[in-house]
Amino acid sequence: MIEIQDLSVIFGEAGQRVVAVDGVSLRVLPGESFGLVGESGSGKSTILRAVAGLIDHWGGSIRIDGHPVGRKRSRDFYRLVQMVFQDPFGSLHPKHTVDRILSEPLIIHGLDDAEARVRAALDQVQLGPSFRFRYPHQLSGGQRQRVAIARALILSPRLILLDEPTSALDVSIQAEILNLLDDIRRDLGVTYLLVSHDLGVVAHMCDRLAVMRQGALVEVASQGDLAAGALREPYSQQLMLASKGYDRAVVNSFTDT
């Protein structure tokens, strides 16, 4: 579904260049759920944004569904690829109702029967029709994220990019959203590329994952490897142990960053 070859992203002017992504290559298979894990500054979100076409100064090549994509994306690209953002309080326009948020993509792409599609999308994320004319400020964090997911689904994409979709939510709400995302993938057979700093979330959601550090790919592992604690690289091991909770011995074993 996604083939990334030697992707590099550099921010900043000549004087203060920051290499956010440094020659990363990876493949995501159709129907797969693939996780990108790493700490802040590891470049995981930057990769996602380059795939989404939200940043336009990257080098290397990105192929989606077999076709290379360029700096500027066509309108059709967005029928294939959609994204759910991290902060549900920031990703919904504060002055648009749920109805407008969901029907705008339909208008842009000239799809008919908007009424039924909006209802179906709300249904899919388990929000009733009573949510249709609310403003974001009338929704809780979990409800907002459901609306954001409905917006991503409404154009029936085949690849959905998930940028820390639950990190701003309480754990109990996170569980509901993760289950919902899981259901959607099973029902629709979409491909997920999920970015998270939380190994627990990635372990639960993804078939395979890539550990990233300072813009580079450390290793690619399967869900089974992660569950069994069989990661090869010391950094991945350290990240995994750190995610399991506080352990004095683990802290002492850290190699300095």
């Binding site: 109990s172 569980a175 639960h204």
Partner: peptide, 17 residues
């Protein structure tokens, strides 16, 4: 309801408040 690395489950339990 919190996902754990070494105990992957098919579905997470949800909280009935």
């Amino acid at each position: 309801c919190s996902p754990e690395i070494d105990r992957p489950t098919r579905r997470l339990a949800t909280l009935q408040r």
